[in-house]
Amino acid sequence: MIIQSVELLSLKVPLHTPFKTAVREVSHIHDLVVRVHCSNGCVGYGSAPSTEKITGDSHASIKMALETVLIPLVIGESLQDFQPLIEKLHKVTNAGSNAKAAMDIALFDAYAQYTQQPLYELIESLSGGIQTTRKTDTTIETDYTISVNPVKQMCSDIDVAVARGYRCLKIKIGNQACEDLERLRVIYAHAQSLQSDKVNLRMRLDVNQGWDTQTTIDIMQKLEHEGVAFELIEQPLVANDIEGLARIKRAIKTPIMADESAFNLAQVVQLHQLDAIDIINIKLMKAGGLYPAMQIADYCRAHKLRCMMGCMLEGSIGVAAAAHLALAYADVITLIDLDGPTLGQYDPIMGASRFKDANIFLNTTPGLGISPWQVLCVFGCR
């Protein structure tokens, strides 16, 4: 089970509509894909997008870190020594979290194939064997992201999402704080007009660091007083303003979720100890892959802290890995925001986990279930 070679490939898929938040606008899913070849024939896949404004990692920096640091680190190593290898990977200090995540996912995929387990079963066994899933129930339901746009467009996008079967929406806001209160009133009223016996619509609010402390308190107290109810508010403040998050938590009823404030376990511990948040958003690209994300989930499990499993704007390789993690930790990861692949016009990775509107159908085959020849067809002409 020796790692013999590693390839780097490119995956680019156009979006249905541009993805807009308070900090960026993107028109394509664009992943750098890692393909690990092992001596027994197993081929493991991992991937990472460019998230320069969030993690600081561009495609160029991810590629350089993989080629100069991480690929030389794993070549010639045996996946039979998986635990020491994955620990060695995450001790590296001269590679960013995206590059580590891509390699980490590929190694997990290859090892799960070697042990003949779906990835979620491998993760369960490594997390202490706490069985929270059933092999017959491997479907996960995700929310859908409504990008920042003029209110009329956002309401139209809500209509489309509801028609596609989504029943939980994440509303992006925060690029015009002075107008956001009224915009949220209109958006919420429109969503309420769609409620029926067949449609029970829930909404989450994602500010992407776009407000300050007092703005957040003022807006949320007014909305709560008016009965405008969001399931949660995500990252209203800049990432390092932990005291501000704690102040908001004391002032409002809506649960607060940390995203950019919670990259790693140390930050999660600080947020929890300072009573600054209610929920942690775990993302593989922030954490650096499955192994450190599991450490965060283990801490949250031990301290009864709820989690969301989120993603950046990624394709189905990385998001499928995140979904497997969410299934393995279903007792603590109770919120799912893994709509990245469905934002694309198509999914070129066939034969593995399937993304169909709100539903993610996880593979029960070993690893991520990706057939090498299918991916070769995707990338062969690039």
Rank of each mutant, 00 (worst) to 15 (best):
L79Y: 11
I370H: 00
F108H: 09
V238K: 03
S371L: 05
F19M: 07
Y114N: 01
S371E: 10
L184M: 15
F379P: 06
E87Q: 12
D81Y: 08
V34I: 04
N208K: 09
S78A: 04
R134N: 14
I233Y: 00
K253H: 14
V13F: 02
V23Y: 08
I171H: 11
I71C: 11
K356L: 08
N208T: 04
I296D: 03
I54D: 02
P118I: 14
D104V: 08
K170Y: 03
G227H: 11
I277Q: 06
I2T: 04
F379N: 13
E231D: 13
K63F: 09
Q273V: 02
A320W: 14
D337T: 12
Y45G: 05
F355P: 00
L237Q: 06
K63D: 13
P18M: 03
V151I: 07
C155N: 13
V74F: 05
N281Q: 10
K152N: 11
V33Y: 09
D31F: 06
V228I: 15
D298G: 04
S127T: 12
L9A: 15
I86A: 00
D81S: 00
S39C: 03
Q214W: 15
N40W: 01
K152E: 15
P150D: 10
E67I: 12
T364K: 15
E7D: 15
R247M: 11
P18C: 00
G367R: 06
A328I: 14
E231L: 14
L107N: 08
G76Q: 10
A352I: 06
R250P: 04
A106F: 07
T216E: 14
Q117A: 13
I370C: 01
P236V: 13
A101I: 03
G369S: 15
